[in-house]
């Protein structure tokens, strides 16, 4: 096993984009779009609309990234987000009408807290099954994904739940000094996670588990506890994404954002996160998200189909993943 997997890991490592490649790519895109679109591309409006669209995918990608770093995968993030979004939506639509003052504020806070609690519960389930029962993450989260979706559909009967108070809507649509509030939330997720990964014992252990879980355990690390916490954290991020999503759409549903699932993996891998674990930085992921968003917004301005955007995203992933291979060839 060791030889083949080592090689696979090395290939995976080499296949991930570096920050340098990404910056170069971003610069090239800017030049191309500056020529084809002109000033409109740099207008405040365009920038703001980009900033509104990025946070959902960004927070979900962070959730995916955490699992990937540990050598796993979390397929249940979207389903978790929808389940916790529906929980919040149920509570809001049920108790907000007719309430006022402190109760009005309290119910909103409690609803969001309940959403987080649901997300944490899913994370505990994932973490327990993966870390303590030894189920492979892809299988475990495939199961919880279906389970969560099932509960969400079962309880909502597939209906959309909508109509929330202003503060909630503000989370998804408001701005602070021109900066979308959702972007601030993304920053409040990304910075602490970057700090956690780079500068805390927990973060260091996550990377080590991603490269070799057994050797990490032999070094005295309680790898099961680390994995459990990690999947709870990943789930909680899905909970944050849930709040942003339901606020932006002013509604919740069991099937929102399902197409995001594979895009989060795409963004993470483009951002240099090794799909086999152990390597990757939040900074790389954010750069990848900006690149994806720039392409999407530019195509929008050029009146090109969003589906062409998808195809270009796929193409860029292959190109960036192939860079180390060609670089290696050129060096030789």
């Amino acid at each position: 096993m060791s030889n083949a997997s080592l090689r696979r890991r090395m290939v995976g490592l080499a296949g991930s984009g570096t920050v340098g490649t990404l910056l170069l790519l971003l610069l090239a895109l800017w030049v191309v779009f500056a020529i084809t679109i002109g000033d409109r591309f740099f207008s405040a409006n365009t920038l703001q609309s980009m900033a509104f669209q990025m946070p959902e995918l960004g927070i979900l990608s962070l959730a995916m990234m955490l699992a990937l770093l540990s050598g796993g995968l979390n397929l249940s993030i979207i389903a978790t987000a929808n389940l916790s979004g529906l929980t919040i939506a149920f509570l809001l639509t049920r108790y907000i009408p007719g309430s006022q003052g402190i109760a009005w504020v309290g119910i909103q806070a409690l609803a969001i807290a309940a959403g987080f609690a649901v997300a944490a519960l899913v994370g505990l389930l994932n973490g327990f099954v993966i870390a303590y029962l030894g189920v492979s993450p892809i299988l475990a989260t495939l199961g919880t994904m279906t389970l969560c979706k099932g509960v969400a559909i079962g309880l909502s009967r597939g209906n959309v739940v909508s109509g929330f108070p202003d503060p909630i809507v503000f989370i998804g649509n408001g701005t602070v000094f021109g900066v979308p509030f959702a972007l601030i939330i993304l920053a409040f997720c990304a910075f602490p996670i970057a700090l956690m990964l780079n500068a805390t014992p927990f973060g260091a252990k996550v990377y080590m588990i991603g490269s070799n879980e057994q050797a990490t355990r032999y070094s005295g690390v309680n790898t099961r506890a680390v994995l459990l916490k990690l999947y709870v954290l990943s789930s909680l991020l899905a909970g944050v994404a849930a709040v942003v999503m339901l606020a932006r759409f002013n509604s919740a549903n069991a099937a929102y954002g399902e197409s995001y699932l594979l895009v989060t993996i795409l963004a993470a891998v483009l951002g240099g996160i090794d799909p086999f674990g152990g390597f990757g930085k939040v900074g790389g992921l954010m750069l990848a998200l900006i690149i994806l968003q720039v392409i999407s917004s530019a195509f929008n301005l050029l009146n090109l189909s969003q589906f062409l955007t998808l195809a270009i995203w796929g193409g860029i992933l292959i190109v960036v993943a192939a860079v180390p291979h060609f670089a290696g060839k050129m060096l030789r």
Binding site: G15, A311, G315, A321, A322
Partner: peptide
């Protein structure tokens, strides 16, 4: 191109 199959197939899913 020596790219892991999971990456390739996510990319081609989007391209196709």
């Amino acid at each position: 191109l020596r790219i892991p199959s999971i990456i390739v197939s996510i990319a081609t899913l989007n391209i196709f």
